[in-house]
C-alpha cells in the first residue's frame, strides 16, 4: 500500500493510503482531524479548504499522494498553543459570522488565504468575489464579509482591535 508522509499542523505523520484516497479522507479518517468538513462532491462548497504549503486548496480535490511531503494547516492548527485564536477566528466570533458552524472551518481557511493575498486590503465587493469558492447556507454572508473586513485590518497591522468603531 502506498504511503504518504506529510506535516499537519506541525506534526509529521506517515500514513498508508490507497491511490484514490483524498487528502480530506486522510485528514478526517486517518488523522481524525474532523474539523475539515465535506459538504459537496463537485468541489464547490469549500467546507474542506485547508492550506497546503501556505495556499488554500480544497482537500476534497487533491489526492493524499499529491500532498506527499507537504506542510498542511487545518482549522485545528490555527490557534496558538496557548489557545489564543487567530485574528480571523476571533473576527468570526466577534461578528457572528457563523451559525451552524459546518462551513466555518473552510470559510476561515479561505478567508485567511484571501487576506494574505491582498496586503493592501479588500473592498466589500472584493471580499465577496474572493469567497467564490465557499458556500454558507446560514448567514447570508453578511457577517462573514464584515468579519473578514475587520480581520484584514488586524492581520495587516493596521488595527489593534476587531471591534467596530461604533455600534
Amino acid at each position: 500500500m502506498p504511503q504518504v508522509t506529510l506535516t499537519v499542523n506541525g506534526k509529521t505523520s506517515t500514513v498508508d493510503v490507497e491511490g484514490r484516497t483524498l487528502l480530506v479522507e486522510l485528514l478526517r479518517e486517518k488523522l481524525r482531524l474532523t474539523g475539515t468538513h465535506v459538504g459537496c462532491d463537485t468541489s464547490q462548497c469549500g467546507a474542506c479548504v485547508v492550506h497546503v504549503d501556505g495556499e488554500s486548496v480544497k482537500a476534497c480535490t487533491i489526492l493524499a499522494l499529491q500532498a506527499n511531503g507537504s506542510q498542511v494547516t487545518t482549522i485545528e492548527g490555527l490557534a496558538k498553543p496557548d489557545g489564543t485564536l487567530h485574528p480571523m477566528q476571533e473576527a468570526f466570533r466577534e461578528y457572528h459570522a457563523l451559525q451552524c458552524g459546518f462551513c466555518t472551518p473552510g470559510m476561515v481557511m479561505s478567508a485567511i488565504d484571501l487576506v494574505q493575498k491582498h496586503p493592501d486590503g479588500m473592498s466589500e465587493k472584493e471580499i465577496r468575489e474572493g469567497l467564490e469558492g465557499n458556500l454558507c447556507r446560514c448567514t447570508g454572508y453578511h457577517n462573514i464579509v464584515k468579519a473578514i473586513a475587520a480581520a484584514q485590518e488586524v492581520m495587516h497591522g493596521r488595527a489593534q482591535s476587531l471591534a467596530p468603531a461604533a455600534e
Partner: peptide, 9 residues
C-alpha cells in the same frame, strides 16, 4: 477561472 482554490491547483 473557477475560484481561489481552483486557481491554486
Amino acid at each position: 477561472i473557477g475560484d481561489t482554490q481552483v486557481r491554486n491547483r
